Amino acid sequence: MTKPPTASAVIGEIAVLGPFFAVDTHPAGTEPPDPWQPMSRALLEARVTGVRERLAVAGGQPGDAVEIRVAASVAHLGLAARLVSPALAAAVLHGLVLAPGLADLRWQPVTGGPVPLSLPDDTLAGDPATTPTRLADELSGRLLDGPLRELAAAMEEFSLSRHILWGNTASAVNGAATMITAARPDLTARTRTLTSLLLARPPLRDTSTTTPEGTFRRRSCCLIYRAAPGGKGALCGDCVLRR
């Protein structure tokens, strides 16, 4: 019988896929030292403020020219991608479901780039799912309806609709899948099968569609185009507004 991979082996394999996949771990039930922090309103506000400032600088504008809700949506997309990416990779590689509660995760308040993420070490325990369908069910129930729903609820306080928030999450799922297949073409079929199953389940059902050319297209907009002067920025590749 093949031995299950060790936690360090799983983390190592995931990290090779890119910075959005890299995670640290801390002993379950303990508090890691500074600068690790639990998710909080203050941390979210700092992240949104930092994103707002960077968007304003990129557009040559004063900070208050960028709407808070625009910065909050961009910040949410980045945080959702940090939760989705390692979870999708662990699922594709080993059938594992990384889905601790949002309160159990620890973050570092850095500006720019993927925010550092630490998981409780017991998150990597458990039996792998045996089929793609079961794995998609587990991810939907434990990841999407777990920390990602908690994150969406927290970001609603920045005047973001659930339509945008779940669209961001769907975009994060597709983005993670794209990065996995770019780094590991041999995982393309497995990754795309699982991603399709996951996007077809609630709460992501009806958040996206596929164009006749086979391109992922979300049914909402992350609003980043509004950060440019006059609200005339470029649209993302998967935006609903793209024609």
Rank of each mutant, 00 (worst) to 15 (best):
A87Q: 02
A90P: 01
E53N: 14
E53W: 13
A58G: 14
A87N: 02
A91V: 02
S73E: 05
R82L: 02
A89W: 09
L55T: 03
A89T: 07
P86N: 00
A71S: 13
A89I: 14
V74F: 01
G60W: 03
A80Y: 01
E53C: 14
R54D: 15
P62M: 06
S73G: 09
R69Q: 03
R52W: 05
L83C: 07
P62G: 03
L88D: 06
D64Q: 15
G63P: 15
Q61S: 12
A65E: 05
R69H: 04
A81T: 15
S73N: 05
A90N: 04
V74N: 03
S85N: 05
L83N: 04
S85G: 07
L83Q: 08
A65F: 02
V57T: 14
S73I: 05
G60I: 04
E53Q: 15
A81G: 14
A89M: 11
V70D: 06
G60C: 03
L77C: 08
I68K: 07
L79V: 00
V66T: 02
G60K: 02
A91M: 03
A58E: 15
V74L: 04
L55V: 04
A80I: 00
G78F: 10
S85I: 07
L83V: 10
A72M: 11
G78N: 11
P86E: 00
S85Q: 10
A91Y: 05
L88Q: 13
G78S: 08
R54E: 14
L83M: 11
G59H: 10
E53A: 15
V92T: 04
A71Q: 09
V74C: 05
V70R: 08
V84I: 06
G63N: 13
S73H: 07
I68C: 13
V84C: 01
G63C: 13
A90L: 09
Q61H: 12
R82V: 03
L83E: 12
G59L: 07
R82A: 12
A72L: 07
A81E: 04
G60P: 05
V57I: 15
A72H: 08
A90I: 03
